[in-house]
Amino acid sequence: MDRLTIERIGGFAGFGGSRLKSRGEVSLSDLAPADRDAVERLLADLPGSAAAQGGAAPRTGAADAFSYRLTVQSPDGPKTVEAPEHLVPSAVRDSVRDTLD
């Protein structure tokens, strides 16, 4: 439940396709309390419901922004949510490394 795996997807280049990846990993316990709270709020939400968080969705018409696919292991199996970049704490965003597969 402590390990958070992160995949950055989208952007102008279309990360997350077959050849271009952006992945990272952090321990929730290593995050600052405020960042851990932010991640846990995202994980508590259903996928795609970030837009419901007080108007925090990207602006209408926005394009090419990154999203983050956040996954934790739970007793029921892996749980994954997708969140727009501006909702993801910088400590989590900065954990990813872009690679060519």
């Binding site: 952007g11 102008f12 280049a13 990360f15 271009l20 952006s22 990207p58 602006r59 209408t60 018409g61 926005a62 394009a63 090419d64 922004a65 990154f66 872009d98 690679t99 060519l100």
Partner: peptide, 20 residues
């Protein structure tokens, strides 16, 4: 490693110097 339009303006990154 990105460029984007946020609904109001254009935004450009410097790239990592390796892939981009």
């Amino acid at each position: 490693n990105n460029a984007m339009w946020n609904g109001l303006q254009m935004i450009y990154g410097d790239g990592d110097g390796q892939i981009f």
